[in-house]
Structure formats: structure tokens, C-alpha cells
Design a binder for these strands. Sequence first.
DNA 1: ACTAGCCCCTGGGAGC
DNA 2: TGCTCCCAGGGGCTAG
Length: 291
Amino acid sequence: MPELPEVHTTVEGLKKVVIGKTITDVWSDFHVKTAHGERSNIKNKKYFADFKKNVIGAKIKSVERLGKHVVINLSNHSTSSWQAKNSIIVHMKMTGHLMYGASDPFVHLIFKLKGAGDLALSDMRKFASVCITETKKVKNHPGILELGPDPLKITFEEFRARIKSASWRRPIKTALMDQSVIAGIGNIYSDEILWVSAVHPLSRAGEIPDKILGVMFANTKKILKKSIRHGGDSMSDYRNAFGEKGGFQNFHKAYRKTGQKCLKSKCRGIIKRLIVKGRSAHFCPAHQIKF
DNA sequence: ACTAGCCCCTGGGAGC
DNA sequence: TGCTCCCAGGGGCTAG
């Protein structure tokens, strides 16, 4: 599922091929029921009609990542210059991925680009959300306004303060996955970070010693960067901007390894699974310490 | 201030 | 082979 490394990989790929391209048409069959609070996206027919109007004729100026969101900044032609105006905000949720010049049976949104390939959104389970807003309002957009800082840019002091201030008693896995604490970590990376750091997912965030938090901080950056180097994680449906799989699924130590022997050297544990805040947590009860 | 539980969705795996 | 049932989960929401 697209978390920080996957969204990063997608954005870096898109940067190479879509910047400067003009959108000539948009197609979508993404008109399904929308969950509560998700009505303001292209799954709503009326919203899509407005979206289409705003997007056709615009030029892609830049692509960036904010947490797990892909932000595509557009510019519109004015008499004097190309000016940024609107931004498309995509959250790929579970099975979504943006692809350039590639397709698969689950494409539900296509941007036709002038003199170039199509930019398509594939999403088997249709959880993705696509919105448009004025570029200057992106930072205040629901879902982005609440985002905490980026774990790749944060300092240890900030990391420590945010993890501890979230809630004294809340499970560390919950804090790591809370996008308002730190933006970009989901189920795969929280499991992997905690396994490597030897911290039990149910440890109370406020009780983890600073020394251990320091280890977690270093491992967070290390693991996210390692996944980026391998093009993200394709255990599920993730594909990069060119429809290719990433490789980080080959390095999992805990995620979806329930019942398997712990891979830590000399550890004799068996990976267990439990539910934390409605998500499955995979961990080794033998070496991951509960604080 | 928090959590449990439900909702959106559908391919894939297990069991028969 | 093909049916049914269950599972995967990000995040928004409500109820407790």
C-alpha cells in the first residue's frame, strides 16, 4: 500500500515525464459511493464535472509529496505568463497508483496529455481520493492541514516531542501511524521500524526511554530510505509511475510474517499478529520489548 | 481525549 | 471447477 516510500517513488517518476505537459482531456468511471467525509472528490459526479472544467487546458507545473498525498500543481495560461492556480491532490489509499504511459484493468481515471502518454490512476479497491483546490489553499486542505512533519526532514528533538506529546498511554504503533504526529508512515513501515528497534507495538508512547526513541528515530529514516532505494513496497498492488513493482517486500522482517521464525540473529521468537486500533500489527514477542 | 467499530471496495485465498 | 466466506486496510465518521 502506498506509504511514504511508495508515494515518493511515484512522485519522482512522474516528475521525469509529466512536468510541462498540458492536460487535454480527463476520463473517469470513478463514480461510486463515497464514504463519510469523502464527498468532495471526483467520485461525486457533480464534483467531477467541475474538476474536469478546471483541469482541461491546464499545464502541469510541478509534482510533490505531502505525507502520503501526491500534489500535482497546475498552471493556467494568462496573457502575461503561466501562473499557478489549481492543484490536484491524490491520496492513493490502499491499492491506488498513478502511472504514466502504462495501464492495467483497474484504471479509473485518465488524464490525456498533449503530445505525450496518458497519466492514469489505477485503483483496484477504489479507495483513492482525488480532489482539486487552489494551489495557495493546498496547505489548508482537509487531510493535509492536519499533517505532522515529514519523518525524513524531522530532527530527533521534534520526533521525540511529537511522539511523547501525542498521548502518554497510547500504543507506539498508533502514534507512529498517526499522520498528525508524523506524516507518511503506515502499517508496513510501523511494523518494520518497531521490529528493528526491538520495541513492542503496544508499548506506551510516553514510557519509551529517550535512548530507545533515538534508536527508533534512526531506524525510521533508515528503513524509509532503504525502501526508497528499492523503489517502494509491492507486496500489495503498488506499482511505480511506469507500472513497475518495487522490491522492499523482499526485506520484510515482520509485516505479514505471522507464524514464521523471527529473522533476528539468535532470536528464537515466532512472529505474532494482533490488532492495534483496527490494524494488524506483526511483531516478535521474544525480542520486542514492551515499555 | 481517546478507542472500538463501521464504512467505502474487490481480488485472492481457504474450505468444501 | 466453482461456490461461499473471509481477509487486507487508510482514513473519516459515530457512539461510547
